[in-house]
């Protein structure tokens, strides 16, 4: 049986409840503080990551899950080098990202006017990643229904799916009025790779599959004993921020 510690208060909650006046900001309240006379340090004031637990969907609909799982299994196919994107948890990763601050662009500059920009000026549209996925995944299924005999993307053969993705990547097909297919493909690709290669605590990269594939030791943090062993394989397996599955007795 899994035992879990009670959720620790975040630094902000702790400070606001104990020592400092809360000054409510617009979106995310943070604290103005005056510090003098010593280095401030409070127990339990760190802000550790929250581990993603698979199970249920916070952002995607069941239809979107089916389409997205088919997409990530083509971007990162299962083969002798690693498990595929679906089994690795890339869609779980994406779901939690899109349900969080990333999905709604809350850290970005989202004030207008929204004008068409030059490529050197970066993304200039008002749609957030969450809105782009909502429109983009529906658009892909609508396109395959219209052009591939009424089938959804997930119902196509792997070769047919690859062909559709290549056309999206090349900007050869249009899936939505407001959404640029090429830029949506690039968004899916970069997010899928994030999920596959990020620490497993974020829901993708199950059992550090991608790290084992590359030989990346993960969160080890101290290589002093190997730095001068030039051109020699690093001997230890990877560890995650959450530890290693190999530490667990099965």
């Amino acid at each position: 049986m899994e035992t879990r510690c009670p959720k620790r208060p975040t630094r902000r909650q702790f400070l606001s409840s104990v020592a400092f006046t809360v000054l409510a900001g617009s979106a995310a309240p943070v604290l103005a503080r005056s510090i003098s006379g010593s280095l401030p340090w409070e127990v339990r004031s760190a802000d550790p990551p929250v581990q993603v637990r698979p199970g249920g969907w916070l952002f995607f609909t069941p239809e979107e899950v089916t389409t997205m799982e088919a997409v990530v299994d083509r971007l990162v196919p299962a083969d002798e080098l690693s498990i595929g994107g679906k089994e690795a948890g890339c869609v779980v990763y994406l779901d939690r990202q899109l349900a969080g601050f990333y999905g709604v662009s809350s850290r970005l500059y989202t004030s207008g006017p929204f004008l068409p920009g030059l490529p050197t000026q970066g993304y200039q549209k008002p749609e957030t990643p969450a809105e782009r996925y909502r429109a983009g995944l529906a658009g892909i299924d609508a396109w395959t229904r219209d052009n591939k005999g009424g089938k959804r993307f997930s119902e196509l053969s792997p070769d047919e799916q690859d062909a559709v993705l290549k056309d999206l990547e090349a900007g050869k097909i249009s899936i939505s009025e407001q959404l640029d297919a090429k830029s949506f493909f690039n968004l899916m690709l970069s997010n899928t790779m994030e999920g596959f290669f990020a620490d497993p605590i974020y829901g993708g990269n199950k059992d550090m599959a991608s790290w084992k594939m590359l030989g990346f030791p993960g969160a080890r943090y101290d290589y002093r004993d190997h730095v001068t062993k030039h051109n020699q394989p690093y001997p230890l397996p990877p560890v995650s921020i959450a530890g290693s599955t190999e530490w667990i007795t099965r």
Binding site: L39, P40, W41
Partner: peptide
């Protein structure tokens, strides 16, 4: 405010994402 022990915590500083 940022300090090493709290904000660059060795338990999870190595988080690329």
């Amino acid at each position: 405010w940022r300090d090493t022990a709290t904000d660059f915590n060795i338990g999870y500083a190595q988080d690329e994402l």
